[in-house]
């Protein structure tokens, strides 16, 4: 094919579909990202009436969509080779594997194992067999007691 690298460079664009995109392609993407940002703030300001999970889900969904637009359009993964796409998504596909760590904390709530019960309010993720009046996410855990955060001197 190419007899000199410079000629190869001239071919390289055509070979990989790195056609120069029209300006509107980038401006449209930028507009989508801006709208996404405004929507996120709007969802934050809107009163969802005590179901804050909705607001969380909306904020994260928009964040993922925005991330998708950045990766796909700005980072040119749309035009990348299969290999490029593979490595572009490898990290994002592998993060859920890391997130499996969280499963442990979900399981702990169902554990009937008093022998592993740690005591004290500072236990980050208490087992369920804790006394009944303590619920980890109740308003009681927001206390106004001014406890010293450092029990001992550093």
């Amino acid at each position: 094919m190419a007899s000199s690298p410079l000629q190869a460079a001239a071919h390289a664009h055509g070979d990989h579909g790195h056609h120069v995109q029209p300006l509107s392609f980038y401006f449209k993407t930028g507009a989508v990202l801006t709208v996404g940002m405004i929507l996120t703030i709007a969802a934050y300001k809107y009163n969802w009436g005590g179901t804050y999970i909705i607001a969380n889900v909306i904020a994260l969904t928009i964040a993922f969509v925005k991330a998708g637009f950045v990766v796909w359009n700005f980072m040119h993964v749309k035009f990348a080779s299969t290999l490029g796409k593979m490595f572009a998504f490898l990290g994002f596909l592998w993060l859920p594997v890391l997130m499996v760590i969280l499963v442990d904390y979900g399981f702990r709530n169902h554990e009937q194992s008093p022998s592993f019960q740690l005591n004290g309010e500072e236990t980050a993720f208490p087992r369920q067999l804790k006394s009944k009046d303590h619920q980890p996410n109740s308003p009681n855990s927001v206390n106004t007691q001014n406890r010293t955060p450092y029990g001992r001197a550093f």
Binding site: I101, E122, P149, Y150
Partner: peptide, 16 residues
């Protein structure tokens, strides 16, 4: 742990 953190989380991440 005294500030509400979970030392076991370190072990999770470390062994990951």
């Amino acid at each position: 742990p005294e500030l509400g953190g979970d030392p076991v989380l370190f072990q999770h991440l470390f062994w990951f």
